[in-house]
Design a protein around this nucleic acid. Structure first.
Lengths: 254, 254
DNA sequence: CGTTGTGAAATGATTCACAGCT
DNA sequence: AGCTGTGAATCATTTCACAACG
């Protein structure tokens, strides 16, 4: 039953009334918005790992995808506990079946839905240095719905050249291109001292989220989600763990 | 899941009896010995941010570095609370001064000590694709003590070429070169299906920590710290947050 | 059997609030 | 005044344990 829980946890349907979730697993976006408010941050990261694992298994299995997959199997593959997996997946609504597991393709579909992998995200990449080029050339992204519309740089020696088949544009055109392409995400791969300015400009031009590779804390007046990936910080954390002789896996951002 | 925890926290706790850190290693004594306490995982990440911020300020200030810096100032720069900063820095021992703040250079030195930035870390990079090349070319790493000794690839068209002035070696030489250079860290930038094998080989050859860019969960028999940076996962998390209209900053790994 | 979903307990992390120092 | 360090309180997340189900 699509039980509403008195306390916290679990799924759609905050208020009495609208039972728009009568259909299995095909919850709408508004339901997602409500749902999201109750999803712990760490769980968001893991949801993306579940989808990654399931997609990998689907690809490997070819036509012979399993009918179901259990929390135990997912947990072992990702180094988590089965209880953790169940708690996370329960956030998506009643989707598993007692004694059986989770319907493989149903779970895959639901995760895609929730994570927005079934949508097309238009991105701009700012900075055509090593990181920017690596991102643009990363084919995997397009498979996941992330589409690079444009790449920008300031260096006149780089502007006008091709990177992964794409013309590098001068960064002056940033605002105009964001508007023209309706880009939702900006991937910032410029040096630290330029990142804040680019972030502000991108957000002012209408971008709704930032992925930041520069080693600075970004803050913009019109607040949008910002995820930072800092290579140096990741290495320092690793080095720290090595010195402590800690064993274990860590997933790291910034 | 008998025996092993899906570890998220370090609880290396060599010295059970901690009688109020009376000992303050202000000199360059063994930093971590005194630090025999449980450090929250999130705090490790933040410590590296503190050092990043302080280094940035030192560089900007040139010769005129401030004498002290307060938790409030650090907090505001990094989007944290001052209490959080104090709690974190208190982990390093009695290092601040009531009513004054933290000695700027003392804090800088202590953070470097604790994070191992004053050490020389020898790394190998496996995979000379876009990400591998970006890592090798990232000059900033050497400043932080991370030195790339070798870079490897399997592709015969890439082996023998130069990447950022370094000769790309065949991956068959991995073990021999790790031994020869005493490399402590391996940065894995190969496709997902090759990553597990490389991880195992690197660890067997003596590496003590892994930085993983491949979108897989790595596990090796001889357990060593592993930090994963997954670009796709980062983007998916960002996309999820955008759809929720969540505002806020997140630091992300894997 | 094996499996999910989930309250309840346990653990972990952050924030509060303030004593005490400069 | 401004500041740190820290116990206590709050908040968040994970793990436990088990009823219900196939």
């Amino acid at each position: 039953m699509p039980g509403r829980t008195p306390d916290d946890h679990l799924d759609l349907d905050p208020d009495p009334g609208n039972g728009d979730s009568a259909f299995v697993g095909e919850a709408g976006i508004d339901a997602l918005a409500e749902l999201g408010r109750r999803i712990p941050r760490p769980a968001i990261r893991r949801l993306s790992l579940y989808l990654r694992e399931i997609d990998a298994r689907a690809e490997e299995a070819g036509a012979a995808v399993p009918r179901t997959i259990s929390s135990r199997v997912l947990a072992k593959a990702l180094g988590l506990t089965d209880a953790q997996v169940r708690k996370d997946l329960a956030l998506l609504g009643q989707i598993g079946q007692s004694g059986v597991g989770y319907g493989f393709e149903e779970l895959q579909g639901r995760l895609r839905e929730v994570l927005g992998s079934d949508l097309r995200w238009t991105c701009v990449v700012v900075g055509a240095g090593n990181i920017g080029r690596a991102v643009v050339a990363y084919a995997r992204l397009a498979d996941r719905g992330f589409h690079v519309a444009d790449i920008f740089d300031t260096d006149p020696r780089v502007v006008g050249t091709l990177v992964a088949g794409r013309l590098v544009r001068p960064v002056d055109e940033l605002e105009a291109r964001i508007a023209a392409t309706s880009a939702e995400l900006a991937l910032i791969a410029v040096p630290a001292d330029a990142a804040r300015d680019i972030a502000r400009r991108a957000v002012d031009a209408g971008v709704r989220g930032l992925l930041n590779f520069a080693p600075v804390h970004l803050e913009v007046e019109t607040r949008v989600p910002i995820v930072t990936v800092d290579l140096t910080s990741a290495l320092q954390q690793l080095a720290f763990l090595v010195r402590l002789d800690a064993t274990g896996t860590s997933d790291s951002f910034e």
